[in-house]
């Protein structure tokens, strides 16, 4: 409760300073929007459903692209981790590719897939695939060997071994990578949506720019932050906590 109170005070002060700066009219409102204007833009956006649609479209792309890269990344990561040749060759390539912002793939993606959903999905997948792959590779290596031996000893083979033993055993080690993959995918998606016109939050933001409506721009920025925060807190924190409880790992505090 005290933590909540601290948060409430902090944000109240922050918005207060913002409102104060706005009220002083140092800059024109079209350069420096006020909390009131942004609030109204948020209200209007939800009122005419344009925000709901944008969120739905963006989330759909995220879910599709992210699931794709999780599945692909796990297969790739396991492959790289279990083969010495792949590890030496692909391993280095993956790490160096990770320094490339995935939006750089957009020109190629548009050329290959046209101005379609596929192009944007490609950018999202490229954004998170490497994180997931590297995390899976690390996870497979860090995972205590005893678990896979125990699994085989109890009769698990092939796909069963992967699903019931290797995957759950490496989960604590890959969770951070999955989380990072989600964050990268989210950034890639918004950048992609901003550059080529289609529905989605990124496009809403660019619309604000085109209309010179900074209230809308900030409103969408707030939405992007909120969704990122909610997914992180709701999905990944919950998963983390449940893992810690099961494995008996103390949360780092």
């Amino acid at each position: 409760m005290r933590k909540f109170a601290r948060h409430a005070v902090f944000y109240a002060v922050l918005i207060g300073i913002w409102a104060l700066l706005g009220a002083l009219k140092i800059w024109p409102t079209y350069v420096f929007p006020t909390p009131k204007g942004v609030g109204e833009a948020l209200y209007a956006g939800f009122q005419d459903h344009s925000f709901w649609i944008a969120i739905a479209v963006s989330m759909k792309r995220m879910l599709l692209g992210y699931s794709l890269s999780v599945v692909l990344g796990m297969v790739l990561g396991l492959g790289v981790a279990s083969n010495k040749f792949l590890e030496e060759t692909m391993g280095g390539l993956l790490v160096s590719l990770q320094s490339l912002p995935s939006i750089c793939w957009l020109p190629l993606a548009v050329l290959w897939f046209g101005l379609t959903e596929k192009a944007i999905l490609f950018v999202v997948v490229m954004g998170s695939l490497l994180s997931v792959t590297i995390a899976m590779e690390d996870g497979r290596k860090q995972m205590p060997k005893i678990h896979s031996m125990a699994g085989r000893n109890l009769g698990a083979t092939g796909l069963k071994l992967f699903w019931y033993v290797l995957l759950p055993a490496s989960l604590p080690f890959i969770l951070n990578g999955l989380k990072q993959g989600w964050a990268f995918a989210w950034r890639s998606l918004i950048s992609g949506e901003m550059i080529f016109v289609s529905l989605g939050l990124g496009q809403q933001l660019m619309m604000g720019r085109d209309l010179n409506d900074m209230n809308l721009v900030i409103a969408v920025m707030l939405l992007i932050i909120a969704i990122g925060y909610i997914v992180d807190g709701l999905v990944f924190r919950t998963a983390e906590r449940s893992l810690q409880r099961r494995w008996g790992l103390e949360p780092a505090s």
Partner: peptide, 11 residues
């Protein structure tokens, strides 16, 4: 086989 480190599944 019962391993020395047991190999129980913590999950």
């Amino acid at each position: 086989l019962i391993f020395q480190e047991l190999g129980l599944f913590p999950w």
